[in-house]
Design a protein around this nucleic acid. Sequence first.
DNA 1: TATTGTTATACTCTATAACTATA
DNA 2: TATAGTTATAGAGTATAACAATA
Lengths: 153, 153
Amino acid sequence: MGDAERRGTALGQVLELAILLNDDMTRALARDGLTVARTHLLWELHRRGPSTQRVLADALGVSPRNITGLVDGLVATGFVTREPHPGDRRATLVSPTGHGTRTASRMEEERAHLAELLFSTMSERQFDGFADGLELVLTRLREEITTAGKAGP
Amino acid sequence: MGDAERRGTALGQVLELAILLNDDMTRALARDGLTVARTHLLWELHRRGPSTQRVLADALGVSPRNITGLVDGLVATGFVTREPHPGDRRATLVSPTGHGTRTASRMEEERAHLAELLFSTMSERQFDGFADGLELVLTRLREEITTAGKAGP
DNA sequence: TATTGTTATACTCTATAACTATA
DNA sequence: TATAGTTATAGAGTATAACAATA
């Protein structure tokens, strides 16, 4: 196998990994009554503590209108609450409920468990080699994106 | 840094890589008037040649109704055609247009270019280490999915 | 009776634009 | 005048269920 072909194979595997991880997460979240987008919001809230919708819109990089919808869904399913912001009557403060906090914490544990599961079969040397390559690929991709912004399927 | 922490960092980087690749592809496809889902269909068509919608539904793992919508979009934007199936008057045959075929071919080239860009800075040894680890991670994840089907965010 | 694709209906994520209430 | 969040509108992706035409 030539270099180009081996690189193509590796890229294919990276893309497959991305798809499998995404599908797996989507399935797992659905069991909790969550979607990927709503979980992303819950996650930011878990990290930042109670926040205005404006802050969340900037954090997630989506429109304020979109945040309204995501918060609507999370309120309806009991993961967050919407309360008047003390001090700015235009704003609302979104906070995780107990259920929301417990769910986010559990997801942290499950993520650690997944990391363990994926990497525990590797030898120290294998893991280091993988981690080094990963770091390089990520750096290269970040550069490429800030430079131009183009890719294939 | 302990093992658990290093594994957590690596998983985080894998997830970031997945997100960056997805965003990058979405942006690039939008310039061609395509979306990820429509491109996936065009791609299958490019590989399989003219196919019925039923076959495409099975190939993409989505509902026949969804294929109707995706094909509608691709017909409207000139990437594929819908014709009566000779031999089964229930079915329709979806085929790539010249534009569709050219676009798919160009995407193949761009993909090879991306692989080159991501991996060309690595030494032979680095690449091999990364590819080995990637193979292991993918195998482990596939196992996990067929076994149960659970993960974190 | 089984299969192919459609119409009908619904939910989620996403965006822009116009508008309300407040700063 | 500027900001926070909403309503209004729109498009894309996804699903199930009912139905038509054909096998």
